[in-house]
Write a protein that binds this DNA or RNA. Structure first.
Length: 396
RNA sequence: GCUGGAGUCGUCUAGUGGCUAUGACAGCAGACUGUAAAUCUGCCGGGGUUCCCCCAUCGUUGGUUCGAGUCCAACCUCCAGCA
């Protein structure tokens, strides 16, 4: 039976960062790699042809959002077939929604300290946590849904992505050490329950689905190291590196985790994709990444270029390319900043939709190309030089 | 020319005697990291010492009134109908 395996091709001098290949039942992922977020089973505004054209290697969908469709997806043979993407896939457990519909409801997730994060009052939350699991309230319909580790595993095994995430509780930057400690004990118990349930269901679609354990623990070294040690001894196929991070803490936190985790298992850094984060993540041992930023920011008019991000609003009638020398389909087709701005602001729904597609294609390809270049720099022993050069151009 | 209707911020628009003139769009600035996000926040007449203050302002000019975008008159412009 086809199953996941991981091959390390080259390791950085620090012993943590590496380039490798994840073999999955639906194909290989050369790492480091960016997995494109398609929460509902498709990437917003992108076709499967677009995904090919930007050299996407994998798609990440969400068990919580697909919970009502999992049986239907199982019926057609799993997410790869259902979506038509037919490549490697990963599903999140719904753990992010524990925070985004719970303590972080209505707030913007940020890595900046000055945001003075305050948790949403418990009574107002659409996700309420107990040791048993999480009581969700559907944001649109108001329907209640209980999801614990067993339910998340059942949903994910029906969806049938190549890689699943253990059900975890993501805490917010506002949570205290005491709360994080308590939540971590819960997440560790959930990891065990996830693993037990997953084992029973993982072969049902004719290929072996993999399960990653997810590490939490906030910004505290003792919590991070102890959970990494604990989950590292369990038979997970890989690990998800989770949490709400301050930028300045990211490198340390990942290092603590990966110094304890088994080196030969793949690691996925959950939810980050800005270039500086990808460099830090790769340096500290993350193999794959996912993030909504490239697609969301594209829709909001923020585009990526070698010399940094910019707001398209400022480029009325501009003949400048989106990013000089970019190999994405949008740039290769000759679209200028002015062209895209005109589509965006045209007031025509079809044109606007085309803008979303063209901009998303550009941003996602930009991040994918970054991971390709990072991989090459690791293989050729030039990681530090490449990082320095890229970040200098990008952030100035 | 006559009769009727209408003129409010770049545009559209609310407002028919009362305190700070609505709201939307456009524009400008910012945010966004395992998607409640095709979203959100701020600015959007001028000036300043800019979490506050001053001045201006509803086509124009006068008038009524304690008080006028609102009522009255004349004029200007636009629209419709009739000549």
């Amino acid at each position: 039976m086809k199953e996941l395996s991981f091959e390390i091709k080259k390791t950085l001098p620090n012993g943590l960062g590496r380039a490798g290949v994840i073999h999955t039942p639906h194909g290989d992922i050369k790492t480091p790699a960016f997995m494109v977020v398609g929460t509902m089973g498709y990437v917003k505004n992108l076709s499967n042809d677009d995904m090919q054209d930007i050299k996407a290697q994998a798609m990440l969908s969400n068990g919580y959002h697909l919970r009502g469709k999992s049986a239907e997806i199982a019926k057609v043979g799993g997410l790869a077939k259902y979506s038509g993407w037919n490549g490697p896939t990963l599903t999140d457990s719904g753990g992010f929604q524990v925070m985004s519909l719970g303590s972080g409801l209505g707030k913007v997730v940020s890595m900046e300290r000055e945001d003075k994060v305050i948790n949403t009052a418990h009574k107002d939350r659409l996700a309420k946590v107990s040791d048993k699991g999480v009581d969700f309230t559907d944001p649109f319909t108001g329907e209640p849904d209980f999801i614990g580790p067993e339910e998340s595993m059942r949903i994910q095994c029906e969806i049938g992505a190549d890689i699943h995430m253990a059900f975890d509780e993501l805490t917010s930057l506002a949570d205290t050490y005491e709360y994080n400690k308590k939540a971590l004990v819960r997440t560790e118990k959930w990891a065990e329950r996830s693993l037990n349930e997953h084992m029973k269901l993982r072969d049902r679609l004719g290929y072996r689905q993999a399960l990653y354990g997810v590490l939490q623990g906030g910004r505290w070294e003792d919590l991070r190291r102890s959970t990494a040690k604990k989950l590292g001894e369990m038979p997970f196929d890989g690990y998800g590196l989770g949490g709400a991070f301050l930028k300045e803490d990211l490198g340390d936190i990942l290092r603590w985790c990966n110094e304890e985790l088994p080196a030969n298992k793949p690691k996925h850094l959950l939810g980050l994709s800005h270039p500086d984060d990808i460099f830090v993540g790769t340096e500290m041992g993350a193999d794959t990444f996912d993030c909504v930023a490239p697609t969301r920011e594209a829709r909001h008019g923020k585009l990526y270029s070698k010399s940094g991000e910019y707001n398209l609003r400022k480029f009325h009638d501009s003949p400048l390319p989106l990013d000089d020398g970019c190999d994405c389909p949008t740039c290769k087709a000759g679209y200028t900043r002015g062209d895209l701005r005109a589509l965006w602001k045209s007031g025509d729904a079809e044109k606007k939709k085309e803008f979303y597609r063209l901009a998303s294609v550009h941003n996602v390809r930009f991040i994918i190309r970054l991971t390709e270049n990072i991989r090459e720099s690791i293989m050729s022993g030039r990681f530090d030089e490449y990082r320095k050069e890229f970040l200098k151009n990008y952030y100035g």
